[in-house]
Simulated assay, not measured.
Amino acid sequence: MTAAHPLDRCAWSALTGRHAHLAVVEGGARRYHPAYGVFAALGDASDASLNGLAALVAAQGDVALLQPDAPPQAPGVAVASQDLGVQMTAERLTEGPAADFEMIPLGDADAAEMLALATLTQPGPFFERTHQLGDFFGVRLDGRLVAMAGERMKPDGFTEVSGVCTHPDHRGRGYAGALMRLVAGKILARGETPFLHAYASNTGAIALYETLGFTLRREVLMTRLTRA
């Protein structure tokens, strides 16, 4: 299961690299601590890795694997869902209009509001400490958080743009695009490449990402695993 590219198994790349301190390890399997994320990865297809993955699911709860192919069967683990997704990268961003609203850094003081907004809008897996995986920015109206975007997995040389969401009452105002430009621009300024994931069926979001300068790198499978 040697990856030809760090993004082919981005969770493994992150959990053995810059996010190794957030990894829960069992045998040849790793997952993010469940307060931070749901993503897991296998070191290889050996029994040690598969048994390790099963132990992580049993002890820590459901996981998700994000990789090009379906994962091998682990004992005592069942597939809860499997969806086709796309992985996109941006070597540069397209020119965009200047935002006519303020985008502010978000942190621990905003954690409860961030979790509430993500729970409402479902941009992807988001937990009580997901905001600590990287830098997040948001838009507030009358003191209320209505939009945000930030960083998630960090394989060496790459950072994932994630957690992009806008309250349903405030969509169509350009918040998501502007926040993504800000987050991705800061990643590029660090000398890294921004990447992201989307369900292949989410054509509206993919179209937005393309206007920002993201292009398709490859298709991936999002496999959610639970106890059998």
Rank of each mutant, 00 (worst) to 15 (best):
H5P: 06
C10W: 15
S13F: 07
L15R: 01
T16S: 05
R18P: 13
H21P: 05
L22V: 02
A29L: 09
R31S: 06
P34T: 00
Y36N: 06
G37C: 03
L42K: 03
A45N: 13
L50I: 00
N51Y: 10
N51F: 11
G52S: 07
A54E: 00
A54R: 00
A64R: 14
Q67T: 14
P68C: 05
A70V: 15
P71L: 03
P72I: 00
G76N: 04
A78P: 10
V79C: 09
D83N: 15
V86I: 08
M88I: 12
M88R: 04
M88V: 13
T94K: 13
D100T: 12
L106D: 02
A109Y: 09
A112L: 11
A116K: 03
L117P: 01
A118S: 13
T121P: 06
Q122Y: 15
F127M: 12
H131R: 08
D135V: 12
D135E: 14
L145C: 10
L145W: 09
A149N: 03
E151C: 08
E151F: 08
R152P: 03
G157N: 04
F158R: 01
T159L: 08
T166L: 03
T166N: 02
H167Y: 04
D169N: 10
D169Q: 13
R171F: 03
R173G: 01
R173L: 12
G174Q: 05
Y175I: 00
G177P: 02
L179R: 08
R181T: 11
I187N: 10
A189P: 08
P194C: 08
F195C: 01
L196I: 02
L196W: 02
A198H: 01
A205S: 09
Y209R: 00
T211D: 01
R217E: 11
E219F: 15
V220G: 14
R224M: 11
